[in-house]
Design a binder for these strands. Structure first.
Length: 680
DNA sequence: TCGTCGAGCATTTTT
DNA sequence: TGCTCGACGA
């Protein structure tokens, strides 16, 4: 039985709220995950809600896994397994897998990632003769994605007349959507958009989902976009919707997150009960004071202030370095010193605004033999070797997937070059059929006998393996056999520059096999389809358990740090142009002092500060290399917003004689380091 | 058809 | 700085 006595009055009220909409404004470190999991357990145990009727939506796959685990701890894994706990994207994907044929797609659709999307758009740009007109495919995609996040289908999109980028996007968007459909593929945004359309056009499906999910809980509600909001509106017509969020931690505006969703929740869902969780159980008084001082400057927010029953704790620290290498060196040394004082590696984290900033830190940590763990988005699935290997699996699952098909048609090379591909595509257009169909019957394409022979072999290869995967009972084993037969390792080594480069790249291939293995071990009924689903949704649970136990310093972007905490946090790169990022400073001074971009940067800073439990160290570099060239950097305005008295030794901003001397000394020692290096 | 080389270019955050 | 794309030669 869950023990409600361990909760504070507000937390308890939230857990024991009965029916009807509930808005939980949960400040950083206020125990919100605990409240959600307790509430889920309470609904099941005290209210007799069936576990199947509970839908909990999180922002990341990792958060979903964690929530399920914590619920399982409270009421047992049997119950937890019956619940739907997933991200919006995973939920929608599951719904579409069941019903997408109603929208004219096939159920074995493929989910395209950013690279696939880019390829498609580049293709269309070339076809429309936009090439060279200066429209980057990325920008076009950004506009399209923005449309989709706002639920605008191609025919609903009315571009601004004076905006050439939007004009171009409006031309590409319909073809892009058509192209996806021809490949039986959807992109990330489609998962939400198409599910929404499915609900609108097929009342019975919506009704079925409504009946199923009687209680809906949404974490990180401040980061929902319009599509997600509308989905919730449709699903939660029964009003049993509990959303948890913190407007001060909304950091995904650039991805279409609509801060209005949380700010207007009470208006949108009449009868809402609002509960504020302001007591912080994570950080020291000093850290909270700094956080409050920064976030207070934002104008568009729900007023609240975090407080703690604990003490002030240690003062903040500011490290000012001449450049980013020195910044990294000082942080690395500091980390080592902390270790000597008995702190574990895993208790420390380095947080930065942009992923490129990780490099100097990695170098310095490696130099000092400090173990670290880089939490770096999805670069694993972005590796060429991984994409090539996975493309085979994708084609086996959905041969209409033209992007993947083109990727592997000549990989490993089999003599089907660009000229032949062009002829094949031309035939596709003439006959209005998919590339796969043309490959099966390429006689009219005008290819050489040599190439035709190769294509026939390729088609037979795919057919054979499709059959084998259907029959396979050991997925990992089958995938390994496939890779072996294809000779992927040999191909990688052949194209690698050096032996160790080849070794390293082959490891990625091994990692794919490991990912299959990890998936297979977790799943009761593993299938190729299921594995691809996980890959597409970036749900990578390889070695996660070991990673948790690993003792290493964490390096990650501020965005990925949301929801986490560390005893000691280094918030690095506190400079104008970095945090706040240049992109948002550029678009500054709109609408009477209120600037949404700058406010989002400030929230980002707030998120970073509030990750720290015991001690926060802020760092900045006076100069930073950009595109190889050093650039002078002013201290971040957010740094100035933190009261000076919170720092070690009082005043820290502005040059002081001691600090100048210190800088001088560092510069000299840096020089002598260089010279001794050169002397070698 | 394939591989090498040089020029030019781009840089926010992620499901 | 580090990568991608295009031109060129084999």
């Amino acid at each position: 039985m869950i023990d409600l006595a361990t909760l504070n009055p507000q937390q308890r009220a939230a857990v024991e709220h009965g029916e009807g909409p509930l808005l939980l404004l949960a400040g950083a470190g206020s125990g919100k995950t605990r409240v959600i999991t307790f509430r889920i357990a309470w609904l099941v145990q005290a209210r007799g809600v069936a576990a199947e009727q509970i839908l909990a939506v999180t922002f990341t796959n990792k958060a979903a896994r964690e929530m399920r685990e914590r619920v399982a701890e409270l009421i047992g894994s049997g119950q937890a397994r019956k619940m739907t706990i997933s991200t919006f994207h995973a939920l929608c994907s599951a719904i579409l897998r069941q019903h997408i044929q109603r929208l004219g797609y096939r159920r074995n659709f493929t989910i395209y990632d950013a690279a696939d999307q880019l390829r498609l758009v580049r293709d269309l740009l070339a076809r429309h003769d936009f090439a060279g007109r200066g429209f980057a495919a990325e920008q076009i995609l950004w506009v399209i994605s923005d449309c989709k996040n706002r639920l605008l289908a191609p025919e609903d999109f009315h571009p601004a007349v004076n905006d050439p980028l939007q004009q171009a996007a409006a031309v590409i968007y319909p073809d892009y959507q058509q192209g996806l459909r021809a490949c039986n593929a959807v992109d990330f945004d489609d998962l939400l958009l198409l599910t929404h359309r499915l609900f609108l056009e097929h009342e019975d499906v919506l009704e079925q989902c409504r009946q199923r999910f009687r209680h809906i809980l949404v974490d990180e509600y401040q980061d929902t976009n319009t599509a997600q909001y509308q989905l919730l509106r449709l699903l939660a017509s029964h009003g049993n919707l509990c959303v948890v969020g913190d407007d001060d931690q909304s950091i995904y505006g650039w991805r279409g997150a609509n801060l209005g969703n949380i700010l207007d929740f009470e208006k949108d869902f009449p009868g809402t009960r609002t509960i504020r969780l302001e007591q912080n159980y994570r950080s020291t008084g000093t850290i909270l004071e700094a956080a409050n001082a920064v976030i207070r400057r934002n104008s568009r927010r729900k007023e609240k202030a975090l407080w703690t029953a604990g003490g002030a704790g240690e003062p903040l620290e500011l490290i000012e370095a001449p450049d980013e290498e020195e910044e990294a060196r000082l942080v690395a040394e500091r980390i080592q010193a902390e270790r000597y004082r008995g702190r574990r590696w895993r208790e420390m984290a380095i947080l930065y605004r942009t992923n490129v900033q990780s490099r100097p830190f990695e170098e310095q940590l490696r130099y000092l033999d400090i173990p670290y763990r880089l939490v770096g988005g999805q670069q694993f699935f972005d590796r060429k070797e991984v994409k090539d290997a996975v493309a085979y699996l994708k084609v086996l699952y959905n041969p209409r997937d033209e992007i993947s098909l083109l990727r592997i048609l000549n990989y490993p090379r089999r003599g089907i070059g660009p000229t032949s591909v062009e002829k094949l595509i031309a035939l596709c257009n003439r006959r209005d059929v998919s590339l796969w169909e043309v490959l099966r019957d390429p006689d009219e394409a005008g290819l050489t006998d040599q190439v035709r022979g190769e294509i026939a072999l390729f088609v037979r290869l795919i057919d054979t393996w499709r059959y084998r995967f259907e029959q396979a009972d050991d997925l990992q084993q089958t995938v390994r056999q496939l890779f072996d037969e294809l000779g992927l390792e040999a191909e990688i080594r052949r194209t690698a520059g050096s032996r160790e480069q080849g070794d390293r790249r082959c490891e990625f291939l091994q990692d794919v096999l490991n990912a299959v293995g990890a998936y297979q071990n977790r799943e009761t009924a593993p299938s190729l389809a299921g594995f691809l689903e996980k890959v597409s949704l970036l749900d990578d649970d390889r070695r996660e358990d070991e990673e948790d136990a690993e003792d290493a310093v964490t390096l990650m972007s501020l965005h990925s740090s949301k929801g986490l905490e560390f005893p000691l946090v280094f918030l690095v790169g506190m400079e104008e142009g970095c945090l706040p990022h240049r992109k948002s400073v550029d678009a500054l001074e709109v609408e009477g002092g209120f600037d949404p971009h700058l406010e989002e940067e400030r929230r980002l800073c707030y998120v970073g500060i509030t990750r720290a439990r015991e001690k926060l160290v802020l760092t900045r570099a006076a100069s930073r290399r950009k595109r190889g060239r050093p650039e002078m950097r002013e201290p971040s305005r957010f740094l100035q917003e933190i009261p000076e008295r919170l720092f070690t030794g009082g005043a820290v901003s502005g040059p002081s004689p001691e600090r100048e001397e210190e800088k001088d000394r560092r510069a000299k020692s840096f020089f002598s380091d260089i010279q001794s290096l050169l002397g070698d």
